[in-house]
């Protein structure tokens, strides 16, 4: 039998992957570029589950998409998405979740470290995403940045602002007090 902690972490990772999939469907059309909640959940996976399990969660999400489940943005899926123009962002999600998780583990729940970790994670997503976009489309680097990064930055700031209260509310519960909450409720 596997350890209780490992089974719980595996179930939570799957849940975060399912949330990332649900977030990919929702595009909030504010301003010229819609805000997609997918990368909010990727950052949350790193913050709530830590580096290793955050990476596992995003890995499971990418695997589900590669197998054809409609979990990527716009309800698409399939291995072809990885070689398309947005494939770099997908790979960047895995690196970002791992890095955000590792950094926030070092910070021991301090808000400033969490914010910095999310900023670094967001930048990592763009490093992968914009580089791949440049390779696939043959655009210049400045044009790739103006198309694939700059329009999304305001939305990313909003997501980081939303993530902080969520993490503050959920972290104590994920540290093993769920049983008490359920018994009391």
């Amino acid at each position: 039998m596997q350890s209780t902690q490992q089974v719980r972490k595996m179930v939570y990772s799957s849940l975060m992957a399912a949330l990332t999939a649900a977030g990919a469907y929702i595009a909030i059309p504010i301003g010229p570029v819609p805000i997609v909640l997918q990368n909010l959940f990727v950052l949350l996976a790193g913050l709530l589950l830590g580096g290793r399990w955050g990476l596992t969660s995003v890995g499971a999400y990418l695997l589900a998409g590669a197998m054809g489940l409609p979990v990527f943005s716009g309800g698409t899926g399939g291995i072809g998405k990885f070689v398309g123009p947005t494939g770099g962002y997908l790979l960047g999600f895995a690196a970002a979740a791992y890095l955000v998780g590792v950094l926030s583990e070092y910070g021991h729940g301090r808000v400033i470290v969490d914010v910095l970790a999310m900023i670094v994670g967001t930048l990592i997503i763009y490093v992968f995403g914009v580089s791949w976009l440049k390779v696939v489309t043959g655009m210049s680097f400045s044009k790739a940045i103006s198309v694939g990064m700059l329009p999304f930055l305001i939305g990313d700031a909003v997501k980081i602002a939303v993530a902080i209260p969520i993490v503050k509310a959920l972290r104590p519960m994920l540290n093993g007090t769920f049983g008490v909450v359920r018994a009391a409720g």
């Binding site: 799957s14 849940l15 949330l19 939303v162 969520i166 509310a169 519960m173 769920f178 909450v181």
Partner: peptide, 28 residues
Amino acid sequence: VKFTIVLFRRIFLDADEFALAMQARCYN
């Protein structure tokens, strides 16, 4: 934020029960 925190709390409770059920059935 109000919607998301409640949603996360409820589904993580569901996930916790799910993990317990897997443990109770000796998941391997």
